[in-house]
Amino acid sequence: MIAVPGSRLPVDEQNRLLSTAPVADFDAHLERAHLPPLSAGATTVFQVNVGKLCNQRCHHCHVDAGPHQLEANMAWPTFAACLEVIAATNPPTVDITGGAPELNPHFRRFVTELRALGVREIIDRCNLTVLMLPSQQGLAEFLAEHRVRIVASLPAVNQQQTDAQRGDGVFARSIAAIRRLNGLGYGRADSGLVLTLMSNPVGAFLPPEQSSAEARFKKLLSARHDIVFNDLIELTNMPINRYLEYLLASGNYEPYLAKLSAAFNPAAVRGLMCLNTLSVGWDGALYDCDFNQMLELPVAPEGSRTIFTYRRELMEGRTIRTAKHCLGCTAGQGSGCGGRTT
């Protein structure tokens, strides 16, 4: 994989690049397929991005997360405001993401309070290696005790591709982390502790068909490393932040956008995550999804743009903010935080 520049493209520049990319606007793709503009229904997934701090610095990261991100992390009053909205609206799933969300000092308190509220499903989007940090002793046990579903990144079943995307040594430490999780019951069918693996393409191409990839991951990870997991989700990389920088540096930007446009699948639209997700930024700002969050495209209703001013009646039925990056979610089998959308 081509190395990306160390500095981040300003958000304005990213939005300009997307708006001037030589493919039709996302809404024009909908129109051609005789589909209406996107609007949100009830929030069933309340996704909280607790900050950009991470122990890794992956080449494809749409968050620009890394060890250098010491400022952009959620403070407790913002968590508390999230808890209030969750208690009032009762979403079935609370999805915690980052960065490495576990590195936020309030992570465990937040999970504990979510459990006390009776949230049905709590998801931790985990990079796996965080579980092996000396500072995170007891983290895996904490997650198991609170029956948190782990959605863990592992792009490939080989060291070469995994390390090319996520950094040297990540594959070996990820395998060790999965082994530790398996030891606690994660990934075993009868334990109730769900371990989902999540794979993004290592380059400028679309992900493989999800169910056949899952079968292959299961077979090879079991045979080579004696580890198990419950299911695999495939995600398409979004042309945002570090992945956008990679596309530009490698000369793949316009071909990739053209590929996403050509692969637009009308059948992938009805399963789009933005239709039932609310995304909260580390500072409490509200977005239609984590990708809009990184492009700083706030939700449409001006009267409900932060968790502190949240108004349910403005959020349900709101028009979803779209731009050309949305073509990543509608390409081929479709893509979202829950995997394929078709």
């Binding site: 080989n158 493989p208 068909e209 292959r216």
Partner: peptide
């Protein structure tokens, strides 16, 4: 090459 990568093949 593209189709193989998109069906989950490694360069190996």
């Amino acid at each position: 090459t593209g189709a193989s990568l998109e069906s989950g093949c490694s360069t190996g």
